[in-house]
Design a protein around this nucleic acid. Structure first.
Length: 456
RNA sequence: GGCGCGAUAGCAAAGCGGUUAUGCACUGGAUUGCAAAUCCACGUAGGCCGGUUCGACUCCGGCUCGCGCCUCCA
């Protein structure tokens, strides 16, 4: 039972070997907090939450850090446009992000470092890079000298010359080489800034991750994750900074990147205006439906976030919750998570489609199961759910959805009236009430023990 | 121009050189006052053209189409 992961750097699946089996360390790039996040931002959160859960089964301790970027030109622009202070914006959206991710059943990382709280560490790293001959000061900027690093481009599998040949790169005149990137840049008086050996300024984009990883997780970590679009330039540059800032450590053993969330077959983008914000989706779909939909494809492939995919995810979850409802009275002992039927699939580079297939097979013959089987099935479902981050609701809450108390009272009254109509064999009235409930998105189910209802 | 990914049944999505992936939807049946749910039944799918092989969705080559990255987008 070995975990295998796909490593972007080597472009192949590899057996996972921790640096320190007593403390596995992983870092995932979090959001820039200037807006509500979209479902594409949620994918790495769900994917690496899943990895975190798997690692926690395999190893006694896992330290998971996910940063909050609270210095950025986009934040400054928002502040300029709205008049709201930068601190107010970043605090508000960092909180909103935490709320959204909690609704997707993502566990809170062990460490959530904020960029603004690590300026001394960032400045220190820049000084080390200059001292080691990998960075230079130019017109109040400090730039990383990409030509000083022999294997720059290794992570993203591209050479500097190829990269720059046909690319649309504006070369600032303070750069020695077009590929050099900013470590530190000057701030105008009305812009946020910090005093530094190079004047008042602020860090470049990539710097915070290098500094925070080193501080919280060390110079050499096991796993670094994020969206595919971060491979270049963000992670390539982070790797360059971290490796050149100290001795030539490997920095990260396994680079893992998730594929995009697409809408109508295309990447979400501002120009297409096809963003789907998580909080908006949550008004129509339960967080577990979003999570299930994200897990329905293997994390490295693209996933198209369509109505059909969400609807199918909901149907599947309904059937699992129905199984759990049927098993409500079964008493179980906790099952070790590594015995859950989804576990083996997850060990194979988080093969969630296979994991979900295993879960469906588990429930398939529930009707024919004897007591021992029912006990095993329920234990397995609970353990699998804990691994996948699903089934955190009770079945009754799940089927009730977001129905409030007033609506519930109204529904119950209608069902009572219908029960009387049925007793009177007044089928017309009974069907009329069912239609009325259906118009409220309520589906009713008659059984020998009475009538139950659920939200469509 | 450089680098890379993908094309599987109505939709979604995996593994695998030779046995039914799986889910959702659809259709028929059982059940039900009618429904819903459940149960039973039901799909030789693998872009195109070659090659390797006893045998290819799976390996190799070419083609077509789609998508992504190439300096601050998860």
């Amino acid at each position: 039972m070995k975990l295998t992961v796909y490593n972007t750097k080597t472009r192949q699946k590899e057996a996972f070997e921790p640096i320190d089996a007593e403390n596995v360390r992983m870092y995932v790039c979090g959001p820039t907090v200037y807006n509500r996040v979209h479902i594409g931002n949620a994918r790495p959160v769900v994917v690496f939450d899943l990895l975190y859960r798997v690692l926690n089964v395999l190893y006694p301790k896992v330290t998971y850090a996910r940063n909050i970027t609270d210095i950025d030109d986009k934040i400054m622009n928002t502040s300029r446009e709205t008049g709201e202070s930068i601190e107010s914006i970043t605090t508000r959206y960092a909180d909103a992000y935490a709320d959204d991710m909690a609704q997707l059943n993502a566990k809170t990382p062990d460490i959530i470092p904020f960029a603004t709280q690590h300026l001394p560490e960032m400045i220190d790293l820049v000084e080390r890079l200059i001292a080691r001959g990998h960075a230079y000061e130019s017109e109040q900027h400090v730039l990383f000298d990409v030509r000083s690093m022999a294997n720059y481009g290794e992570l993203s599998n591209r050479s500097l010359d190829d990269m720059l040949a046909g690319a649309r790169v504006e070369v600032a005149d303070y750069k020695r080489d077009a590929g050099d990137f900013v470590l530190w840049k000057p701030s105008a008086d009305d812009e946020p800034g910090w005093d530094s050996p190079w004047g008042r300024g602020r860090p470049g984009w990539h710097l915070e991750c290098s500094a925070m990883i080193e501080k919280h997780l060390g110079k050499h970590i096991d796993i670094h994750g994020g969206g595919r679009d971060l491979i270049f330039p963000h992670h390539e540059n982070e790797l360059a900074q971290s490796c050149c800032g100290s001795d030539d450590t490997p920095f990260v053993n396994y680079w893992m990147h998730n594929g995009y969330v697409n809408i109508d077959g295309e990447k979400m983008s501002k120009s297409l205006g096809n963003f789907r914000m998580v909080n908006e989706l949550l008004t129509e779909w339960h967080g577990e439906v979003l999570r299930y939909a994200l897990l329905s494809a293997q994390y490295r492939s693209e996933v198209n976030f369509s109505f059909d995919v969400l609807s199918s995810a909901k149907q599947s979850l309904d059937s699992f919750y129905r199984a759990l409802e049927q098993l409500q009275d079964v008493v179980t002992e906790p099952m070790p998570l590594e015995q859950a039927s989804v576990f083996a699939a997850l060990l194979d580079d988080l093969n969630t489609p296979n994991a979900l297939a295993a879960l469906h097979q588990l429930v398939k013959n529930l009707a024919k199961a004897d007591e021992a089987d029912r006990k095993r099935i329920k234990s397995d479902l609970i353990a699998s759910g804990e691994l996948l981050g699903l089934f955190e609701e009770t079945p009754s809450d799940w089927f009730k959805g977001n129905t409030d108390d007033d609506q519930t009272a109204k529904i119950d009254a209608l069902i009572a009236e219908r029960a009387q109509a049925k007793a009177d064999k007044n089928w017309a009235r009974a069907d009329e009430i069912r239609d009325e409930l259906a118009s409220l998105d309520i589906i009713i189910e008659d059984s020998a023990s009475g009538t139950t209802w659920r939200k469509a």
